[in-house]
């Protein structure tokens, strides 16, 4: 080397310090992956905790109420003094009413929004609208509940006087508004991943934008669109505060939408805000209802994953 000798002299102490430092480093290298694995295990423990909670407490519930009555019973009167009945079907029907209305609102609007953003809108318009949709998706559900009760319900009642203050239609519509951004944004992602060469081919044959959107892009992106709808259904089933505020607390096994109903989630809220003591059958019933709710959403989520994996077209 033509450069000057390095100024520093080698000190034995420093070398020893460095070596022991190395030992510490090596120890950290060994420990960190294990520590991080333990942290990652928390998410698995959470799932185990949820399953454990639901299964154990639901088990206690079923030691008091026959499981057949719970699954097939058409009457849900847990607060009855003499003979309380625990048939979950009225709560399931209530949940399905809300979910059905929400899907009727959200699927057309959500997919139409996705088509507009992905096929028609300029980049500038998209840049403005997408963040606003994100805001709409971020509005807390209690705020939507307030909106349903104090704005949508009065409007509906002024148009159709037979609708009561608590009904299935108003919260159903508002749950639909809540899940619309989710369908729009996931469907748009699916449409965006359709390659432009397919669009260009159709344009070259003289197609209009509409024909390209409906006959080329929509079929190519259908797995993503269906998956987004299934996920949205799962969200609507699990939605709690909107229905707790605006749908009422009358479990009913019928098809009426204008009167007060009760969903699975709203029942859990009703018991939690009431004064049912720890250890009563009513207390354990919220776990049985929660377990049912959990199974519904789990099936929907797995279905969405299956659809987007199984039917995805790779380009």
């Amino acid at each position: 080397m033509s450069m000057k000798e390095p100024k520093t002299t080698i000190s034995v102490q420093e070398l020893i310090a460095e070596k022991s430092n190395r030992g510490l480093l090596a120890l950290i290298e060994k420990i960190m992956p294990k520590l991080l694995f333990l942290i990652a295990a928390v998410s698995v423990l959470t799932t185990i905790g949820i399953l454990f909670t639901l299964i154990v407490e639901t088990g206690i519930f079923f030691s008091r109420v026959p499981i057949i009555e719970f699954i097939t019973g058409r009457e849900w009167y847990p607060f009855a003094n003499s003979t309380p009945t625990y048939g979950i079907l009225p709560l399931v029907v209530g949940t399905l009413k809300i979910t059905g209305i929400a899907i009727l609102v959200a699927v057309p609007i959500g997919i139409a929004t996705a088509i507009y953003l992905s096929e028609y809108a300029s980049r500038r318009v998209r840049k403005i609208i997408k963040p606003i949709l994100e805001v709409l998706a971020g509005v807390p559900t209690i705020v939507y509940g307030f909106f349903a009760l104090t704005f949508v319900t009065p409007i509906l009642r002024s148009m159709f006087p037979e609708i009561s203050i608590f009904n299935a239609i108003s919260p159903g519509i508002v749950v639909g508004i809540m899940i619309t951004p989710m369908i729009a944004s996931l469907s748009e992602d699916a449409m965006n991943s359709v390659p432009n060469s397919m669009r260009d081919g159709a344009y070259a044959l003289g197609s209009t934008k509409l024909e390209v959107a409906l006959k080329i892009v929509l079929p190519a992106a259908i797995s993503g669109i269906v998956a987004s709808t299934v996920l949205a259904i799962s969200r609507a089933i699990g939605e709690t505060m909107i229905v707790a505020v605006a749908a009422g607390s009358t479990p009913r096994f019928d098809a009426d939408l204008t009167g007060s109903i009760q969903t699975m989630t709203a029942y859990i809220v009703q018991v939690a805000t009431g004064d049912a003591g720890y250890g009563t059958t009513i207390y354990y019933s919220i776990y049985a209802v929660g377990f049912t709710l959990f199974l519904f959403t789990l099936v929907m989520n797995m279905l969405a994953q299956y659809i987007s994996k199984r039917f995805r077209e790779e380009y």
């Binding site: 699990g238 709710l293 959403t297 989520n301």
Partner: peptide, 11 residues
């Protein structure tokens, strides 16, 4: 991520 928040409440 798909578990309803009310179920987390039960947990």
């Amino acid at each position: 991520a798909g578990v309803p928040s009310v179920v987390f409440g039960l947990l």
